[in-house]
Design a protein around this nucleic acid. Structure first.
Lengths: 142, 142
DNA sequence: TTCGGAATAGGAATGGTTACTGATCGGAGA
DNA sequence: TCTCCGATCAGTAACCATTCCTATTCCGAA
């Protein structure tokens, strides 16, 4: 997992027309710090440690901008808030139905599925999200 | 799409220990009547036409029971209420991001994906849901 | 330095869903 | 058929993730 370069960040902001504010940078830092797949609330709490005046709404707005310009990916599992991820490459994540932890599933080929979907629907496909749920190794036994 | 047999319904209720009440039957009928992929609210409105006293909460509870015993499947797309479906076989559905209509995507092989997921994670996989979004033929042009 | 549009803080509002409570139902057993 | 008890229901309040609103602040271009 290569960390996003400073240069990439500036470039993506420049091209999008959005401004790279301190709050948006702080949200990126928080995502890096959280390392896993934090929710907006998780990110908010981390950002708040350094800047107690941030608003939760600002975090949501920042995450939405970051996602729009391709620096962040989001995934949603039912009965759980949306999770955010610095890994924007197509990949699978699994969420433990018991403890809520999320981790990556490596080595699954997704390209064929996307193609097969496009070949079988008259819709213009814009997004395909796969939500995998299960029990993590430590919750499995309990 | 074969309609679920009366016998199957009774059998699944009997085995589960839940009771087949008139409300739960009405929810099943409403799903059949709606034909597509109605939301809980849609189902509620249909049921209400014949029994104005039903409560929305009852519809939610009935749908949850029906899903648990395998008579109904549910799917969730972000920014949209959960949709329910009498087709409980694994299959793909695509939702139009513009008008919200949902339709089935036939002919996509999913078995390999499931298998590949199980082979690549230490989690015990319990559920894999795929949410495909796009623009339907009539919204594509607008 | 000034100005205007973008971004933010703070908090209220939204909307799908669940939880709660007292009334009602329905089926197993007498 | 009648009784009784747990399941289910109607009605409504609560929940919670997320969005919306508004006055204020920030920031960059001129």
């Amino acid at each position: 997992m290569s960390s996003v370069l400073e240069q990439d960040i500036r470039e993506k902001f420049r091209r999008s027309g959005y401004t790279l504010t301190s709050q948006r940078r702080a949200v990126l830092e928080a995502l890096k710090e959280a390392k896993g797949h934090p929710s907006a609330e998780d990110v908010y709490l981390i950002v708040k440690r350094k800047n107690p005046r941030v608003a939760l709404g600002t975090v949501y707005q920042a995450l939405s901008v970051l996602e729009e310009i391709g620096l962040v990916d989001s995934k949603h599992w039912s009965e759980s808030p949306t999770r955010y991820d610095l890994n924007v490459e197509p990949h699978l994540d699994i969420r433990c139905a018991r403890c809520g932890s999320v981790s990556e599933i490596p080595g699954v080929e997704l390209g064929e599925l996307e193609e097969s979907i496009r070949d079988n629907t008259p819709y213009q496909v814009t997004r395909t999200t796969i939500a995998v749920e299960g029990l993590c190794p430590s919750c499995k036994g309990a």
